[in-house]
C-alpha cells in the first residue's frame, strides 16, 4: 500500500498510469503519485523495475497506455506532438551515458539547449558561461567531451539541463558510470539546483545515495509503485 506523503502545490501528478509495450507485458502498472514543486525525489528499484519508463513518460518520450499525467498543471497524456518541444523546455534531462555531442565543444553542447529554444546569441553566451561556472567547468569551454573525464562530461550534461532554468530536472542513473567520489560531486549539483527551486527526480538503484542525501523515495518493483517513503539518514 502506498501512502501519499506529499502536501503542497503539485508539479507532477500521475493518476492510474500504466504503460505496456506488449499486451501481456506492462512496464508500469497503475501508478498514482504526486510530486510537489521544489521537491527532491528518488525513483528507485532493481533493473527493469520501470524507473526509466517512469521518467520517459514525464518528458513525453513515451505515451502512457492508460491514466493521466499532469506536469505543472498541464495534462500531457494526450499532448499533441507539436506541443511536446514546449513541454520539454520546462524539463531538463540527464542520462547515465551523458548524451553529449562529441563533435562539438563544451560550450556548443550547453549552448545547444538554448539555441534549440531560439534564444538570442548574447543571451546564450551569458547563460552558458553561468551554467558552466555552476558546475565548475567554465575553464573547459573549448574542449570537446572526449577530452574530459566521465565526471566532467556528466557535469556538462547537467549544465546543459540546467542552463534553460527548467522547472523539473530528471536524471536517469546520472552517477551509474561514475565512481563514488564523483557521484557525490554530481549529487551536490542536483542538491544545489533543488535548493534554487527546481523539482528534481533522480532514478537510481544506488541505495547509498539516498541514505547519504535522504529525500523522498519512490520504490518501483516490476512496474508497480510499492513504496513511497522518507528514509532515515545513515
Amino acid at each position: 500500500m502506498v501512502y501519499p506523503i506529499f502536501s503542497g502545490s503539485p508539479m507532477i501528478q500521475l493518476y492510474n498510469v500504466s504503460k505496456s509495450y506488449q499486451k501481456e507485458n506492462s512496464a508500469l502498472k497503475d501508478i498514482s503519485v504526486q510530486i510537489g514543486k521544489g521537491e527532491f525525489v528518488y525513483v528507485t528499484g532493481a533493473s527493469g523495475a520501470g524507473k526509466t519508463t517512469f521518467l520517459r513518460l514525464l518528458y513525453s518520450a513515451e505515451r502512457a497506455t492508460r491514466g493521466q499525467i499532469l506536469i505543472d498543471g498541464q495534462n500531457i497524456s494526450r499532448i499533441s506532438r507539436l506541443k511536446i518541444p514546449y513541454l520539454r523546455r520546462k524539463i531538463g534531462v540527464v542520462f547515465q551515458d551523458y548524451k553529449l555531442l562529441n563533435s562539438r565543444t563544451v560550450y556548443e553542447n550547453v549552448a545547444f539547449a538554448l539555441e534549440a529554444q531560439g534564444k538570442k546569441r548574447y543571451e546564450v553566451s551569458k547563460k552558458v558561461y553561468k551554467a558552466l561556472k555552476e558546475v565548475g567547468l567554465e575553464h573547459r569551454l573549448q574542449r570537446t567531451p572526449l577530452e574530459l573525464s566521465g565526471g566532467e562530461q556528466q557535469r556538462i550534461a547537467i549544465a546543459r539541463a540546467l542552463v534553460v532554468d527548467p522547472l523539473i530536472l530528471l536524471a536517469d542513473e546520472p552517477s551509474g558510470n561514475l565512481d563514488q567520489e564523483v557521484a557525490l560531486e554530481i549529487m551536490e549539483l542536483f542538491r544545489q539546483a533543488n535548493a534554487r527551486g527546481t523539482t528534481v527526480l533522480l532514478a537510481t538503484h544506488d541505495h547509498s545515495l539516498y541514505h547519504r542525501f535522504p529525500r523522498r523515495v519512490l520504490t518501483l518493483e516490476q512496474g508497480r509503485l510499492v513504496k513511497d517513503h522518507q528514509p532515515e539518514t545513515l
Partner: peptide, 16 residues
Amino acid sequence: RDELEIMTLVGATLRF
C-alpha cells in the same frame, strides 16, 4: 542520429 535525438530532448521544434 544522436544529434537529432538530443535536439528533440532539449525542446527543439521539428522546424528548428
